[in-house]
């Protein structure tokens, strides 16, 4: 089911405000170094703000296990356990798209 998600993520390009990091869970504020909080022209990196938490969690688990191939996300996903991943996913899901 995770395999149909990429185009959905890639098309999610609505405007959002600057990252609100004060109460973001550990790790979340680093994600926006690549996954922009605002619309970026010609970016091939999908935005994740406002995506469903369950979908983000699925992706992170599949990146971590290698079930979903990746260039860099597998290496990053391995740095987060389930609890940390769930917290980050819930936080991004609650951010405006």
């Amino acid at each position: 089911m995770g395999r149909v998600l990429l185009p959905v993520l890639a098309s999610a390009l609505l405007l959002a405000g600057p990252a609100q990091a004060a109460d973001a869970p550990p790790g979340a504020s680093s994600c926006t170094g690549c996954h922009a909080t605002t619309k970026i022209a010609d970016s091939v990196i999908p935005r994740i703000a406002g995506r469903k938490a369950a979908d983000i969690v699925t992706f992170m688990r599949e990146y971590r296990s290698g079930a979903w191939p990746s260039s860099v996300m597998g290496r990053i996903a391995k740095g987060f356990d389930d609890q940390q991943t769930n917290a980050i996913a819930a936080w991004f899901a609650a951010q405006p798209e």
Partner: peptide
């Protein structure tokens, strides 16, 4: 990805 990263990090 490198090019997208640059556009993102400078905007962020």
């Amino acid at each position: 990805y490198a090019a997208s990263w640059f556009r993102t990090i400078t905007a962020e």
